[in-house]
Design a protein around this nucleic acid. Structure first.
Lengths: 189, 189
DNA sequence: CGCATTCCTTAACTTTTGTTAATGCACAGG
DNA sequence: CCTGTGCATTAACAAAAGTTAAGGAATGCG
């Protein structure tokens, strides 16, 4: 967690103490949910260990939005900020150990220390860039290209997430992903 | 501009003065570019009047990313933050009047006044939510649904942007968009 | 060990979307 | 007023992706 934060800012000891007081631990067993649609997100989570899937339901089908490995932070930002019920689910794909910080504490942190406000801003800025790139890939790259990018950029996710969830993350069907993989094996190597 | 900012924070007079000193005006004629691929983004822009298209080139084709109407802010955040050359173009679709603030001034603002740091954080948080929703729509909704959402949510963009640019924004071809529109006319109404 | 479950693959078929090309309309510039 | 250019539509055809269904490997559990 510390190294995650220090990639972005350099808090002094007092800043750290303030922050660490607010952290709580939580464990999730495989298939447990951190958040379900209809609930309001009140915490930001940091993955110490395990793997969390963000997905949502449309017409009874689960669509994967993202996968969070060790060293990632996640929450439903929209729900957290507005207090509206979330439309998303966050589910442990493996047994997980999380560090949580409550939104109310986060606000106190922002108010008390400029460096944490900065942390919030910089984290959000990075997040914008990441999501924007993902969005553009969806418009401009073919499913095969998106799959290849995933292989290159997030091989660890590929190893630990079932293929049908990868497919819905890429915006295609499991059948089609299987075809793409075969095609790559035959032609590419 | 003022009302745009005040939707997010309430700066006092000193805050405002600090901010307004940093603003510069810029006009663009139709088809002028605010930024071209290869250049580094050094300013954030606010659209006072006109309409700006964000697009990029792939295989010689222009793909529209977003359209900024009066009252919107834009820049290439990635280029702005990293100093790397942008991959995007920002082009005036109509004669435009912009307010600019330099990244260097922005940094000074953040350093000098906590409220502007907060403005930055909140703006970015909103942006994350917006882009995330767009991304999810691309994965989970059909082109027709995406077009209908656009009709509902951004009718003003539809009125002022050529249809083939709308198509590339939706991730489909102009021909297909035309088919969708006909289909909606025949069945929907 | 046997059984159920989950998940990946494959095939046959259908639907959706893209491609190419032709037509016609509107509008700007000479 | 004429003409070129850009743009939307349409049709015919091609390619990409989805659907359904079946089979088989791996896994977990009694």
């Amino acid at each position: 967690m510390r190294s995650f934060v220090e990639q972005v800012i350099q808090p002094n000891d007092a800043d750290w103490e303030l922050f660490e007081q607010m952290l709580t631990e939580r464990t999730l067993s495989r298939k447990d949910h951190f958040l379900q649609a209809g609930e309001v997100a009140r915490h930001v989570a940091f993955v110490e260990k395990g793997l969390v899937r963000n997905y949502y339901l449309k017409d009874g089908n689960a669509h994967s939005v993202y996968f969070y490995l060790e060293g990632s932070m996640f929450t439903d930002i929209h729900s957290l900020l507005t207090g509206q019920p979330s439309r998303y689910y966050f589910e442990a794909l493996e047994d997980c150990q999380l560090l949580l910080i409550a939104q109310t504490d986060m606000e106190r942190l922002y108010a008390q220390s400029a460096i944490w406000e900065r942390f919030g801003r910089l984290t959000m800025q990075r997040q914008v860039v990441v999501v924007q790139e993902m969005k553009n890939a969806l418009v401009f790259d073919s499913p095969q290209e998106r799959y290849q990018q995933l292989v290159r950029q997030k091989p660890r996710i590929l190893e630990r997430v079932p293929q049908h969830m990868i497919a819905s993350y890429l915006g295609i069907t499991p059948v089609h992903l299987s075809r793409i993989r075969r095609n790559l094996l035959e032609t590419g190597a």
